[in-house]
C-alpha cells in the first residue's frame, strides 16, 4: 500500500469518525430523494445507515485492501446484504437498491470536502471511495437478485403443494386428482405426497386420477410408473384413472408398458375397483406373480 493511499485511508477514517451523524443523515436524505420514499421507512434507513457507517469505520481501521473490504469484512458485508435483502422484500427495484448503496459515495465525498481543498487529495479520496463502494454496489445487486430468487422459489414450492391435494375417498382409499400439465418436479411432489398419505392413513389403495391432465411425456409416464411401483413396495395398491385418448396414444407410441398397472376409465370405476380391493386381504407384490400367494 502506498503512503499516499495510507494517508487517504486515514483521512477517510477520521472523517467517518468525526462526521458520522452528518454523513448518515445526508445519505438517508439522498436515498429518500432518489427513490419512492413511501416504500421505505426513514427511521429504518437511519438505523441501517448508522450500522453501515460504523462497520465501514471499523473496516477502514484494519488493513484489508479497500477493494476487498466489503466482501471480506464480516460485519460490513452483512450490513450491505441485510440492506439489499430488506429492499428486495419490500419490492424496491434492483436499480434503486444498488443506487442506494452507491449514493453513499456522494455523502462521503461531500464530508471529505469539508476537511481539504487540495485537488490531489480530493481526487485520491474519490478514487478510494469508489473502489470501496463499487464492491458494495455489486454485492448489493447480487444479494438483491438472490433474495428475489429465493422468494420465487418459495412461491413455486407453495404452488406445487397447493396443486397436488391427496384426499381420503373411502376407508383405506386415497385419491389424487391431478389437474394441469405434469412436469417432472410436480410428478415427484405427487409421488412423495401420495406415499406419505398412504403411511399416515394406512391406506390400501391410492387412486391417481389424470382426467385433468392434457398430455404426458416419457419422463412423466416413467414417474407415474415409479409411483405405482413405490406404492406397491409400501404394501398398498395403485389405480390410475381418467387416461384420455391422446394420453393413451402417447403411452402406446412411447412403448411404455402399463400392463402391470390397474387402469380404469373414470374415477368412479376406480373407486369401485378400490373398494373391491380393500375387501380382499391386504397384499401387494412387487412385479411378478407369486406362486405361493396363488396357491393359498
Amino acid at each position: 500500500m502506498s503512503p499516499r493511499e495510507d494517508a487517504t485511508r486515514q483521512r477517510l477514517h477520521d472523517v467517518l469518525c468525526e462526521r458520522e451523524k452528518e454523513i448518515a443523515d445526508r445519505w438517508v436524505g439522498l436515498q429518500l430523494e432518489q427513490t419512492d420514499a413511501n416504500e421505505l421507512d426513514a427511521s429504518d434507513l437511519h438505523t441501517e445507515a448508522a450500522q453501515l457507517i460504523s462497520a465501514l469505520t471499523a473496516g477502514l481501521a484494519g488493513d484489508t485492501p479497500v477493494h476487498r473490504l466489503v466482501v471480506s469484512q464480516g460485519e460490513l458485508r452483512s450490513c450491505v446484504m441485510e440492506l439489499s435483502l430488506h429492499r428486495a422484500r419490500a419490492g424496491a427495484s434492483p436499480t434503486d437498491t444498488s443506487l442506494a448503496v452507491l449514493s453513499l459515495k456522494q455523502a462521503l465525498l461531500e464530508a471529505v470536502q469539508h476537511t481539504t481543498r487540495d485537488t490531489a487529495e480530493l481526487f485520491a479520496a474519490a478514487v478510494l471511495i469508489n473502489r470501496l463502494l463499487d464492491a458494495a454496489g455489486a454485492l448489493s445487486f447480487e444479494t438483491y437478485v438472490e433474495g428475489r430468487e429465493e422468494i420465487i422459489q418459495r412461491q413455486s414450492r407453495q404452488l406445487l403443494e397447493v396443486s397436488t391435494p391427496v384426499v381420503r375417498l373411502w376407508r383405506h382409499v386415497l385419491a389424487v386428482p391431478l389437474i394441469g400439465t405434469l412436469d417432472t418436479t410436480r410428478t415427484q411432489v405427487v409421488m412423495e405426497s401420495v406415499l406419505q398419505a398412504i403411511q399416515d392413513h394406512e391406506a390400501q389403495v391410492a387412486i391417481i386420477d389424470i382426467t385433468g391432465v392434457p398430455a404426458v411425456d416419457t419422463a412423466v409416464a416413467q414417474h407415474l410408473m415409479h409411483t405405482v411401483n413405490a406404492v406397491r413396495l409400501m404394501g398398498a395398491d395403485c389405480v390410475i384413472s381418467g387416461i384420455r385418448p391422446p394420453i393413451a396414444q402417447t403411452i402406446a407410441q412411447l412403448g411404455i408398458d402399463l400392463s402391470t398397472i390397474l387402469t380404469k376409465a373414470t374415477l368412479a370405476d376406480a373407486l369401485a375397483a378400490a373398494i373391491q380391493l380393500t375387501d380382499e386381504p391386504t397384499l401387494a407384490t412387487g412385479g411378478a406373480t407369486d406362486p405361493a400367494a396363488a396357491s393359498r
Binding site: 406415499l195 406419505q196 394406512e202 415409479h226 413405490a230 413396495l233 398398498a236
Partner: peptide, 21 residues
C-alpha cells in the same frame, strides 16, 4: 415412503417380494 421412492429410482423393484403396509 422415502425408502420406497429411492428403491424404485435405483431401479430395484424387489421382484416377487410381497409387501404389506
Amino acid at each position: 415412503p422415502a425408502v420406497a421412492i429411492t428403491l424404485v429410482e435405483l431401479g430395484l423393484e424387489l421382484k416377487g417380494v410381497e409387501t404389506a403396509l
